[in-house]
Design a protein around this nucleic acid. Structure first.
Lengths: 232, 232
DNA sequence: TTTTATTTGTCCGTATGTATC
DNA sequence: GGATACATACGGACAAATAAA
């Protein structure tokens, strides 16, 4: 393995361990070079690799600073996980961890504007970026309007594509409510975080072009890895 | 700490932990009293306190039901705590818990578009609704542009009024980033929540009518008591 | 305000090992 | 084997931006 890669890994682990705190300055290139017994240019190559991945930010005349990089996740009218995360250059993935049919309780009936006790399809999704899980989400669909959607989703791996099969060409965000909780064992295991770590909980309803609710979602994001950005 | 307060806290945390789910019925007063080994009236005092804060709703002859209505907090171009919470019919309060002058680090300098090391006024605020703390906030102001703002704030008890003294007639939200953390001892004490409970962390920058940044704020909301509502 | 030191960015060149044609 | 291209590593010099005196 090349020298600069080893040095980049060393620095990355120092950041992960907290030896270098986010927002603080890295030692100068010359100092790092002396510490590792290499030339300054070798250190520069290592730092360039970290900067490319957004872990540090170099400022000429000032120093190189450690970024606390949570992936920005903009909330807009049109909010699609794969478009947002994929568009930011990450490899997007999604997995259907469970699905079931259940009766709509009062809250769900109101949110999706359907009758109380009406059949709902519940999909449990796990979405990740660069193989790292970001979000465990529960999505509810009207089982009458979207029969067999679970099977379609398993093939499509995309809510957008699955809904398109039922003629929903576009859907937009109607309401977004954000709060926070701490992770229980279930979500912690799925998201690969420790129990008790913070989750961003986003409850949302999406509507089709006829203003009819099509989707209710509760997305639980690993707050350590992501921040919501609200565009105004 | 009084018995009924301890019991109220226990019940509140059971709700927060999800042991008692929103919409379901609490155990009867007598049952709770036996569980804690206290008189029924002590439990009644605890439940009354929770009901006052809107966490539960007692129905004669039926039972006590968990509301857990988080106060909705809309995020808009114009976002003012007192207007939002006060407009929703709550009694708003704010307290300056600390203030200091510090040098701007790289992050702050960039956010407020001032020079690195420039003097910043830091205000620590505790905002509450109906005597319940909702939010611990840290606000940074350019100390050169707003000299003595801490003293003015102590009198005004409002950022909006304090800035108006310096000719800032209106300011609007430029950026809003939302993430979540768990409460440490400091914030937990101020917000009267247990250590480890979730916080909604909102980092924002406000600009004046000349598009110059005037305010950088990190607001830490008790996530158990509030939810952000994003208007699109 | 000016000067000086520090730090990153860019350019030059040299040498070595490795993979490919 | 030989020629070529490429990545890696080292050394030096200077420019540009910043911080501190």
């Amino acid at each position: 393995m090349s020298l600069w890669r080893q040095i980049a890994d060393e620095i990355e682990q120092s950041i992960a361990r907290g030896t270098f705190q986010p927002g603080t300055r890295l030692p100068g290139e010359i100092e790092i070079a002396e510490r590792f017994g290499v030339n300054r240019h070798t250190v520069r190559r290592a730092i360039a690799a970290l900067a490319e991945r957004g872990m540090v930010r170099a400022e000429r005349g000032s120093g190189t600073f450690i970024e606390q990089r949570r992936i920005p996740y903009p909330i807009k009218q049109r909010t699609r996980f794969s478009e947002i995360i994929g568009g930011a250059g990450h490899a997007v993935g999604a997995r259907l961890t469970a699905s079931s049919v259940e009766a709509a309780d009062a809250t769900m009936a109101k949110r999706l504007k359907i009758k109380l006790g009406s059949k709902l399809l519940r999909l449990e999704l796990l979405r990740h970026a660069d193989r790292i899980p970001l979000c465990a989400a529960t999505t509810w669909l009207d089982a009458h309007r979207f029969p067999n959607a679970a099977a379609f989703y398993a093939a499509d791996r995309s809510i957008t594509r699955t809904l398109a099969r039922f003629g929903v060409r576009n859907y937009t965000r109607k309401s977004t409510h954000v709060t926070a909780e701490t992770a229980e064992a279930g979500d912690a295991g799925l998201l690969r975080i420790a129990v008790g770590r913070p989750l961003l909980v986003v409850n949302s309803v999406d509507i089709d072009e006829a203003d009819t609710p099509v989707l209710a979602t509760q997305a639980r994001f690993a707050a350590d890895r992501l921040e919501l950005v609200i565009d105004s």
